[in-house]
C-alpha cells in the first residue's frame, strides 16, 4: 500500500491544477458572458487571422 503515499499527493496535485485553472479563468473574466461565448466558438470570423 506504499503506492498510496505517491498516489494521494499526485491526485491532489492534479485536482489542484484544475482548481488553479478555474481560478485563472474566473480572474480573466471568462465567466462574464457564458451565452455569448457559446455562440462565439462557432463563428469563423477569426479562423484565418487572429483577432488583433
Amino acid at each position: 500500500m506504499e503506492i498510496l503515499g505517491y498516489l494521494i499527493p499526485i491526485s491532489l496535485f492534479l485536482g489542484g491544477l484544475g482548481l488553479a485553472a478555474f481560478v485563472w479563468a474566473l480572474r480573466s473574466q471568462q465567466f462574464d458572458d457564458p451565452e455569448g461565448d457559446s455562440h462565439r466558438i462557432l463563428a469563423d470570423d477569426y479562423d484565418d487571422v487572429p483577432r488583433a
Binding site: D32, G36, R40, A43
Partner: peptide, 25 residues
C-alpha cells in the same frame, strides 16, 4: 451568433473605433 459578428465587425469599421465587444448574456 450571427448578430455578434455583424455588430462587432460593423462597429469596428466606424472611424475612430478601436474595438467593440458584444455581451450576449
Amino acid at each position: 451568433a450571427a448578430c455578434i459578428s455583424t455588430v462587432e465587425r460593423d462597429l469596428a469599421r466606424h472611424p475612430g473605433v478601436g474595438s467593440a465587444r458584444v455581451n450576449l448574456t
